[in-house]
């Protein structure tokens, strides 16, 4: 028996998107403006915690579109990153090792932190490579 076999019907959600996607787009525009003017390097909008209906979600995806870059990251579970058609607006989804969506957010920046190698990791790599070279 699966969950679908339980004869409970959830009340149908409101048809069509709400005003939320357009409100979000205004917020994105303001943050993008701040990054463009150099008042900020990086901004984020948490999508996971917002009460977006499936229709809202779909409309937000349509409004932002898909851009030129997409990437998959494996760090204690999968993460998906893509730049939207609005340059500098990135859409990120983090999954746990159990494949559950644990975070979803927009990052407004030139390059998302998840794609950058942290300086500490880079320095640790220097030591690791040195070790390997010494062993040869």
């Amino acid at each position: 028996m699966s969950l679908d076999d339980i004869p409970i019907q959830i009340a149908p959600p409101q048809e069509g998107p709400s005003e939320m996607p357009k409100a979000l787009l205004h917020e994105v525009w303001e943050l993008l403006q701040a990054v463009c003017a150099g008042r900020s390097v990086r901004e984020r909008i948490d999508l996971h915690g917002l009460p977006l209906s499936p229709a809202d979600y779909q409309q937000l995806q349509q409004l932002l579109g898909r851009g030129e870059v997409s990437a998959l990251i494996e760090a204690s579970g999968r993460s998906e990153v893509f730049e939207t058609a609005v340059a500098g607006v990135w859409w990120l989804r983090d999954f746990g090792a159990d494949e559950r969506l644990v975070a979803e957010y927009l990052e407004i920046t030139a390059l998302p932190l998840m794609l950058m190698t942290h300086h500490d990791d880079l320095c640790a790599a220097v030591a690791l490579l040195q070790q390997q070279l010494s062993a040869e």
Binding site: G49, S76, G77, S79, G96, A103, Y105, M114, D120
Partner: peptide, 28 residues
Amino acid sequence: RRQGISRRTFLKFCAAMATSMALPASMA
């Protein structure tokens, strides 16, 4: 890091925590 856990994993953990605690996403 010695165990192979990168800063990206910290970022993911903190993004998940920020979401569940309703903290601003920029806090992650």
